[in-house]
Design a protein around this nucleic acid. Structure first.
Lengths: 210, 210
DNA sequence: AAGCCCATGTAATGAGTTACATGATTCG
DNA sequence: CGAATCATGTAACTCATTACATGGGCTT
């Protein structure tokens, strides 16, 4: 039997099935649509397109352009749509939800200085608040989009997760300041919301460039 | 400049610093302590120990045994503890929290049959409920352990996350049954809890402190 | 007798990231 | 004039998983 392909392959196929696009546009689409729970780098998109083509699940058509470089526009084939449907009918693999770069550090917090712990928690909160803001904006945006239903629901999954974790931060902060494992939180400057916007962009770019 | 090592390397070092152990025991410890947010396979533990040894951050001592095979017991060196402290003082890398195998399938739910969607959501709920039960038990267990503070807090992070996602399932189920994108939920058979026990992580069964 | 537990590893494979390469166009 | 955007890829690398190998002791 055929060894089963990674989720990413099907994700690329699925996106392409929603909207024929060039590899370049598809990567941007993937980042918008799946970026929060299934990041796919641009290079990887190209590789998966190559694989999908050799499977006969997608095909491409060259599109010459005047001012811009020529491109190949990809679309799913009948076989590809069949494969996608088959994949969707199979149960999801349970793993993959793991790996939290904050927690793996936090766990060893007994060895950290209170100041380092304070910074760690502050950074995490900032990241989560940026995510929450981004997702809230996305949800509102998708409210007016006809095919945005599943995207909106997926985004709500992320929103709820972020909110639960922010509540967790409040909880541990209260517990840890009480036992002086943590210096008290500083008052946030209400004039300075640049920190948030910066964090948003940094988190995004960290994925692409770092 | 030294290229920075993966988190896993430091995680192994950190665990070893809490408790000297053989590679075998360390792998079990890692699974108990970090398994929910930073899984480390047994083979990987051995590789990281080799790397840490060549860095001079850990050292080993052979321990002969009578009935059981001989083993090497590892412990962190002074240099290793320094490296660990330095790592903990650095900010955490923001990424790593991503990749949800359920969501990447759910996102394409418009192409799924209502029955397949029902199965997908049921599976996810089952997984989350198993996680919630495991973590709740772990938290209760760690309440009586002197050094279990950070482990308990980390577990609460997972617990809150799981609960938020279960609430999300309720939300989308209500929305989707209302628009008949989903057949109504079946009554759970109270006699059949085998599914839950299967979903429960095997490694979590052995929860005695070594 | 089968199968798990202890204990340590090697080998193969593959998914994903990052750096690099190229080059026209457009915008500040 | 430099930077960003559009567009497509190659090459190198490494983290992580999985399968395999070995073998005595203990339990069902």
């Amino acid at each position: 039997m055929v060894r089963d392909l990674p989720e990413t392959t099907y994700a690329v196929l699925g996106l392409l099935d929603m909207e024929r696009a060039s590899g370049y546009d598809l990567a941007a689409f993937a980042d918008r649509a799946l970026g929060y729970f299934w990041p796919i780098s641009r290079t990887l998109v190209y590789r998966e397109l190559g694989r999908l083509e050799s499977l006969g699940w997608v095909e491409s058509e060259p599109v010459p352009q005047d001012r811009l470089p020529d491109k190949r526009v990809w679309s799913s084939t009948e076989e590809g749509r069949g494969a996608l449907t088959a994949w969707l009918a199979q149960p999801a693999v349970p793993g993959g939800a793991d790996r939290n770069g904050f927690l793996v550090k936090f766990f060893f917090g007994d060895r950290m200085s209170p100041e380092a712990m304070r910074r760690l928690l502050d950074d995490y909160r900032e990241t989560l608040e940026a995510t929450r803001a981004d997702l809230a904006a996305l949800i509102e945006h998708l409210a007016g989009v006809p095919d945005g239903r599943m995207g909106r629901r997926s985004a709500r999954h992320g929103l709820r997760t972020a909110e639960a974790r922010l509540a967790w931060i409040d909880e541990v902060e209260a517990e840890m300041t009480g036992t002086s494992q943590l210096p008290p939180a500083e008052e946030a400057d209400p004039h300075d919301d640049s920190a948030h916007h910066q964090a948003t962009r940094v988190a995004q770019e960290a994925r692409e460039t770092a």
